[in-house]
Structures are given as structure tokens and as C-alpha cells.
Design a binder for these strands. Sequence first.
DNA 1: TATGAATGAGTATTCATTCAT
DNA 2: GATGAATGAATACTCATTCAT
Lengths: 190, 190, 190, 190
Amino acid sequence: MARAKSEEKRLSILSAATHVIAKQGTEAPTLLIARQAGIADGTLFTYFRSKDVLFNELYLHLKTELRDAMMPGYPLGASQRDRIFHTWHALVQWGIDNPEKRQAMHVLNLSERVSVTSKAAGADVFSFVMGLLKEIVESHQLLQVPVSFYAGLLGVMSESTMDYVCRGVDHPETAIAAGFNAFWRAIGGD
Amino acid sequence: MARAKSEEKRLSILSAATHVIAKQGTEAPTLLIARQAGIADGTLFTYFRSKDVLFNELYLHLKTELRDAMMPGYPLGASQRDRIFHTWHALVQWGIDNPEKRQAMHVLNLSERVSVTSKAAGADVFSFVMGLLKEIVESHQLLQVPVSFYAGLLGVMSESTMDYVCRGVDHPETAIAAGFNAFWRAIGGD
Amino acid sequence: MARAKSEEKRLSILSAATHVIAKQGTEAPTLLIARQAGIADGTLFTYFRSKDVLFNELYLHLKTELRDAMMPGYPLGASQRDRIFHTWHALVQWGIDNPEKRQAMHVLNLSERVSVTSKAAGADVFSFVMGLLKEIVESHQLLQVPVSFYAGLLGVMSESTMDYVCRGVDHPETAIAAGFNAFWRAIGGD
Amino acid sequence: MARAKSEEKRLSILSAATHVIAKQGTEAPTLLIARQAGIADGTLFTYFRSKDVLFNELYLHLKTELRDAMMPGYPLGASQRDRIFHTWHALVQWGIDNPEKRQAMHVLNLSERVSVTSKAAGADVFSFVMGLLKEIVESHQLLQVPVSFYAGLLGVMSESTMDYVCRGVDHPETAIAAGFNAFWRAIGGD
DNA sequence: TATGAATGAGTATTCATTCAT
DNA sequence: GATGAATGAATACTCATTCAT
């Protein structure tokens, strides 16, 4: 069998890895991840051939989960602003609700251990956002630089907003909105 | 007297460390740094007591260099837009001209090895920018969130711009300007 | 279940350490001990958390073994002379039969790596000898100095005797007896 | 020149080495010895070709000094007991007065770094004692074992006495005498 | 399949000794 | 001769991965 027995165990390893990576980075020993998952050191390697494989799979796992969190309630027929706001809000809310997952994703993004291929696959998650952004940016005539540049801004500006909220803030919704407004202006809105 | 400890050698270690950290991260062996600097393994430790000391000193060294690069030509009496543009331009230009230094600084910023003290000292570099931003943001009445939030945006949006340019682009100045315009709009400019 | 941690392997590490310490002292590399024990470098540390832990455990292991060698055949109801002679003989005989263990114990006794706690525990081995010596010394009215002084003499005079025998001698029993007679006279016997 | 310039500096290195070895053993870095002697690290090696050479020379230096301390006031025509007591007293007194030198000598005696040749040369220091002991032991008819055995007893029993006194004692002379009496009885005196 | 003992390559730092100044 | 920077071999311990049980 290509994949080992218990799916539950697989998930608990991914969850343990998220926790450990968020706290200690990618140099944390696999032993810690195994302990956190409640399994023996060696067992980890029946589920993931190597540490790098684990990290690549975790990266995609997290990206997928994030995408799934961004879908529900998407207002298909609404205005550009409402649609991109929904995306922004779902993204930031997920980050705030799952700080360890966000931190782990961030660390993995910078790690050499996650392959270019995985990173490319992870970027696809945002492909649907690209379409929306393209529509907006074109209508705003901001095409000196490609849409991917504005997609990048969405990424880092939302991260900035999450960081700010996570540092402790009285009214998260105000912050989320302020962040969005900055982004909306940045891409020529209003 | 014996050979004096050579400032030139010290700098070549810092430079080697920049190169190696940019490529491999902070877990790269000191042996590689020494080799890159053209010295013996042990010699590194006559210049820096430990790996951590080296990394902390390098961090401040890079921050200082960046600050020095942002000063010349600052248009003291000019408009808000011109002043913040000068800052933006110097920052982005330095990053484009010194991709390894930028990457190393980024890695060190995230590293546990660089102490909170060093990071605080490094942040002071941008204190003069804070003043300018405060002036702008207040005049634009964007105070639902503190100025530090917009300072964060300056950081990540300029990084985004540098990444974009470094990925290879025909007209860097266009990209730098496009990035600035996005930032300027984000902070309420028009 | 996985391989159980083998008591046999633990003992072979202790034995290898005895050999190496006797030859090279406590500064001998752990690599040598591992090689001598027929295991991999790193395996040593699954049995003993650190070099110091190994040395402390070895110290107590040897002390315990020595005590066990001194017990059998102790003539409970015999004269003072016969009882202390039995002790002397067992001690010297063990030292002659186990020159490496004796040397290792000696080296460990002087080493900073063996904790005060371990040394105190090791000293308890001789507590029963202290009782006997006290009885003898008091009956000989040699109390200008405390019994511990004469216990010290027992230690160094028996060591001296072992050294002498180990240097190569025709009739060990004659030497053992001569050494004992000197000690017996030293503590006021006869 | 076979020997470097300042005899004073040579002596201060020997003195520094005594101090450092007594405190830290023979594994103490030469850097510490140099510092203690008030000279540069490298200078030590113009006076002593290597660490081992330094230790061998120090060993003989200390042995010689001890011999010199045992000579004055030797009662040539006196009784056996008085002559050996003088030797004993001088020896123990020197040890009490110079605990670091005694400790260093002890450590060097056990060290692999001091050659067999040096140790043999060091033993010669006691050759004059051997003559006296021979005379006594023969007259006491204790010749089942050679005189060297009783010389060994002199060494370890006097060491034991010094240890006892150095541990802190109210009347050193009483202890010195008690130790001597034990030794005198051990070699058949009465 | 699960376990955890066994492996051995990898790494920061120390230190005796050399040698440029 | 004196200095102390330069050298690089040496060493305890860690950890990803394998494999006997």
C-alpha cells in the first residue's frame, strides 16, 4: 500500500507538525513531532518517507484547508468590492483563528525544504482570486505591472493585518476593515 | 606586536555570512562561512565569540548600512509625497542592488538567534520614517489603526516590490513607481 | 516491541569505560569507549545521557562490585585481628585481580566529573569497616587523631600493597601479609 | 641559546603552572598558565617547547625543591628514630606549607604526560631516605618485602597525614606526631 | 504495523602550537 | 624576544533514518 494504515494517525502527525513548526521552526527534531502526535519516533516514517516529504505534504495540506475556508458564502453576483472583501475577510479570519497554522505556513513558505513544485501548487490555491483581481485591476487601469504583483500585495497586506490583530487589539473587525480599505485603495478602488 | 586583528577580515566574515545566510539560512555551518571568507574554521571565533554573536552583529551591521543608504539626498523641505517617495525609492533601490543583504536581513529578522535587544536596536533605524508617516497618516485622517500599522505596510509593500523587481523586470523604475503609487494610495494619498 | 535496551550492552560499555579510563584517564574520547564496547558512537548516549553520567554510574558500579567482593566469608565472631585481616585480604585481592578496575576507580575518585554525591555514596561502602576500625583503635587507645585518619591509612596502605604486588612479585600472599602486618602495627596492634 | 632570556620569567611560568595545575589539573589550557604568569600565550613556548616539556620540567623542579626543604637541620649523628622523624617532619611540613605545590606534584605523578624517565629521576630525590630506611628495616628484620615497599609507605602515609592536617585541625604538631608514630610502628619501631 | 534501539554523519567550539609583526 | 592572530585537529552530543523485534 502506498499509504499506511490509519488516516487519523496521519492527520495527528500533520497537526503535531504544525504545532511544532510554529513553535520551533523547521529545524525542530522529528522526535518532537512524533511525541506530540503520540506515536513512536520511527512510526512517523511509515506515514511520511522523510522529514522533507512530511513538510511538503503539510504545506499543501494547510494551503488546501485555507482555500476551503475561503469558499463558503462567496457572494457570486455581488460587486467587485464585496467579492474581494469576502475573500479578504475569510483569509484574515482564518489566520486569526488559526495562528499556529498561519505561522507554520509562513515558515514553510520560506523553507528550502519545501520544493518549488509544492510552492507552485500552493499558489494555485489563489488562482480564483487572481481572476477576480484581474477584473478589478483592469477596470482600474493599473496595468503597468501584472496582476500577480497585486496578488502579492493581497498576501502581504493581509498578513500584516493578521499580525496586527494577533498582537492584541480591541476591535478586530475595525482592524480587518482598515486593512481592507488600505488594500482596496492600493488596487485603485474608490 | 603581533598581527593586529584586521578590520578587513572582520568585514569579509560579515560579507561571507551574508552570502551564506542568504543561500542556506541560519542553520548553515560556520565552516562554510569561514571558507567563504577565506579563513580557517577557528579564526572566525577570534572575531566573533560565537555563531550567535556573529549573527547579532551582522544584523545590526546590515541595518546600519541600510539606514546609511536611505539618508543621502533626502529632500527636507519637499512635499509629504516627495519625502516619502524618496524614502521608498532608497529602500527599494538598496534591496534591489543588494539582494543577498536583503535576504540575509530577512532571515535574521525571523531567527531566534537574533536577540530581542538587537531587533529593537534595528527597529530604531526606521524611527525617522515613523515620524514622517505619522504626519501623513494624521493629515489623511486614517487613525482607526495606529501609525505602526502603516509602517508595517511600508515594510511589506516595499519588500513585495523588491521581490517583483528581482524576479526580473524590464523597467525597474516603472515597477518601483507602481509599487509606490499603491502604497501612497494605501495610506490615503491621491 | 522494538529491541529492548540490552543489559549486556550496558555492562559492556561500563567494562569498556573501565578499560579506557584506566589506560587514558577521564579525558579519553567517548568514541574510544564506544569502539571498545563494540557499538556505534551515538549508541553510548542511549545508555548514558552524557559522559559525566557514564562516569558517575561507573564509579558506583565499581564501588558496589568491590563491596560485594569484600563480604563473602567475613568471620563474624572472630578476633579483631582476624576480622580486619579478612577485610584487608579481600580488598587487596580484588585490587590485584582487577587492576584496571582499581585504576579506573582511583582516577574517578580524583576526577571533578564524579559528583560529591556519588563520592559520598561510594564512601558508604566502607562504613562497615569504619565500625570495626573504631572498635580496634579505641581498644588500642590511639585517639589523638580520629578513626577516619586510620581509615585513610587502611586505604593508602592497601593501595601501596596492591601496587607492590602488581609490579610483579613471586609470593603475593607473603606481600599481602607483610602489608597487613605493617598496617596492623600502624594501628597499634601487637 | 638553548634557554630563553629571563630566568625570572621562567620561574613565574613554573609558579603559574603549579597554581593552575593544582586548581584545574593537567588539562587546563596553556592560555591560563600564560595569563597567570603575566605573559602572552605564545611566549610560554619560547621557554618550554611544549606543554609536556613544561610539565616534565615542573615535576622535577618541584621534586628538587622538596628535597632542598628536607635537608636543613638533618641530625647526622642522631638515633634512627630521630633521623627518620626529621625527614618525616620536614616532608609533612613542606606539604602543609605548600598545598598547591603538593597538589600539583600529586597530579603530575599520575599524569601520562610526565614520562617514566622523569618519574624515575624524581624518585632519586628520595634515594637518601632509602639508605636510612634500609638501615632501619634491616635492623628490625622486616625483609620479607624490599625496602622500596616501606619507602612507598613513607610516601603514602605522609600524604595521608598532610591531607588530614590540611582538612583543618587544631594542633598540627599532634597530628604530625600521630602520623609519624603510625609509620614508625609500621616499619617495626617501638 | 508499531516500536524504539542502533547507526554514524554532522557541527560549534576549544586549544596547542606556529609565525607574521 | 615578545606578542597574539591564525591554524586546523579534536570531541561531545544530536538527529534523520533504518531495522530487528
